[in-house]
Design a protein around this nucleic acid. Structure first.
Lengths: 347, 347
DNA sequence: TTGAAAGCGCTACCAG
DNA sequence: CTGGTAGCGCTTTCAA
């Protein structure tokens, strides 16, 4: 059988409460005793049961990230490894474990609720796509710390961390303008997606600031696949006034767009400039290589974890105040490659 | 405070042992009573504490996957999302949680040991790269079920699941031969890597079966980056007898190789045929698109999880026998694209 | 069919 | 500084 605290107590000839104090490095135990008991623990190969400790302390040193693993083509999925890595890096260093929960969006509310109440985790990191309005209130009420991955709807009453997509779109658009492109098209996405609105807002904002105006004919929110990228460019080329630059929602749209331009014999970046959101997985490997907007997804995860750890520790300190409106925006960075550098410009 | 089993017992006017039986759907409780008590649980919003249950049952309904998250360019990383998804799909359906552990390879042995003994998980899925020889014995001795991701060294005394890399290489090589290519080079990898040996073995085997012989000048085990792919092809082109086909260790090597060939004006597949391991992330998007070997990584994860769940359940039943030598090989599939189809052949 | 009591392994409080 | 005792919330005999 497993060796328990009682075995150690017996072997050391002390009470188990003393052993417990050694375990928790209590200052009331003299160093000599500590070392003696620790030696015994080592000899006997003793590791405390996390469940017993957890039950007694009402704390499990575990954080859960709730996502929908079935959505195989999501933003999260693509960067999943990095986000998880980021979360783990901060959570792990504080001695917490990380559990991954696959939450089907149908009964997400119930799932989150049960999970929190069962005390399987001290805190939750929740992908925005599975967080219903009511679920968040449940959690708040149940007093379970959580932070949302991705800005949550309009009202951001809860701690969340997201990429600053608006700013990203501004950066891309300004770069294109600076390169001398003037008629910038926006392809990919869907009108109802938050991601789209945020990015489109940044694009519009940058254009307006330069007094360029936003031509409604130049946006093609018709999906984010390679095929839709190809189709969008086909349509674009039939326009009376043809854009001279393209901003793409992702690498696959961009790839499709590039392919269409190549098929038509239109050169990038000479005749048409191009920049895409996301630096993965294709941007560096297309011809020409695509300028892209890199986002630090590891940092995103890390930031989310930091917020959460803050909440967990402050739990008793400042319940409401702390939880409210702590949101963080991760700033994306432009990586300039051939696809958006006009001949003659310095890269 | 949280509502506990005692609260329910009180509210229902029964002993807590009765409530416990309801919780576990014991047959000794009449249906009427069960329903009455369940209704009360629902009303009072009762969810049992997983730690208390776990402590009492000595079982936590949790499985951990141990990998080295710091190796950002690993085979695992690339397919991480799929593997995790696969594991979750089987483990989740059985009511188990999945925790991800970042195990630094230095003290991996100690980490695994502590983790198992602390009873944070009922079973472990361990990436082969962090499993030292001694660690495995520790686990066996501690009686903790585990399965290894990736074949473990020479001796496979432990349950493990891996891609059948040898078979994959055979498939690629045979395809190339069938297309009429006769001088097949092998680029990427490192001689000491298992991955390399397995694949090289398959390549050699297929060649020998056709009586082709393996030309030692035609393998370039000099790393798996884009740059090494480029360099390998440069070297290859200077050979007295130049190969007419290339088998690449991964997409990046292949990309580098492709780039070099393009720079030299050598056409693929006309003058040189090419196939790469892995169908992600670039293979479908290069020019020409690369024939590749697709591996079902979701299935890999699922299979590993199935093995593990088997071990967990058999724990009391057949301890040694069951654990030994249960290994599974996932068969990879060839996806034929332009890069390996000789003009004139039917695709 | 139900319940009282004795744990599961650890912490926490309070004497001494 | 140390030890006894009473939990943490649930399960599991064993009688009744």
């Amino acid at each position: 059988m497993k060796v328990t605290i009682n075995d150690i107590a017996k072997a050391a000839n002390v009470a188990k409460s003393t052993v417990s104090k050694v375990l928790n490095d209590s200052p009331s135990i003299p160093l000599a005793t500590k070392e003696r008991i620790r030696a015994i623990m080592r000899d006997m190969n003793y590791i405390p049961s996390s469940m017993a400790t957890g039950l007694a302390k009402r704390k499990c040193n575990n954080v859960a990230v709730m996502i929908d693993l079935s959505r195989r083509n999501d933003f999260l999925n693509q960067f999943f490894y990095n986000i998880i890595g980021g979360i783990e890096s901060v959570v792990g260093s504080k001695g917490y474990d990380l559990t991954i929960c696959n939450v089907p969006q149908e009964d997400s509310r119930d799932f989150l609720h049960r999970y929190a109440l069962s005390q399987k985790a001290d805190g939750l990191i929740i992908d925005t796509s599975i967080l219903e309005k009511t679920a968040a209130s449940d959690l708040l009420e149940a007093n379970s710390p959580f932070v949302v991955l991705g800005a949550w709807g309009e009202e951001r009453k809860f701690p969340c961390v997201d990429i600053d997509n608006r700013l990203g779109a501004v950066k891309i658009t300004e770069h294109l303008l600076a390169q001398g492109y003037r008629r910038i098209a926006f392809i990919g996405g869907r009108k109802k997606e938050h991601l789209f609105s945020q990015r489109f807002a940044g694009y519009s904002e940058a254009l307006r600031r330069r007094g360029c105006g936003v031509n409604p004919l130049w946006s093609f929110p018709e999906g984010s696949t390679e095929a839709s990228g190809y189709a969008a460019v086909e349509k674009m080329l039939r326009l009376p006034i043809v854009p001279d630059a393209i901003l793409c929602m992702n690498n696959y749209v961009a790839y499709g767009a590039l392919r269409c331009l190549r098929d038509r014999g239109i050169s990038v970046p000479d005749e048409v400039g191009m920049v895409t959101f996301d630096n993965e997985p294709l941007a560096p490997y297309t011809s020409p290589p695509l300028s892209s907007l890199h986002t630090d997804t590891f940092g995103l995860g890390a930031k989310a974890a930091e917020l959460l750890m803050g909440l967990i520790q402050d739990e008793d300190t400042a319940p409401e105040e702390a939880a409210k409106s702590r949101q963080t925006w991760i700033e994306p960075h432009l990586i300039v490659r051939e696809s958006s550098v006009k001949p003659g410009s310095a890269l």
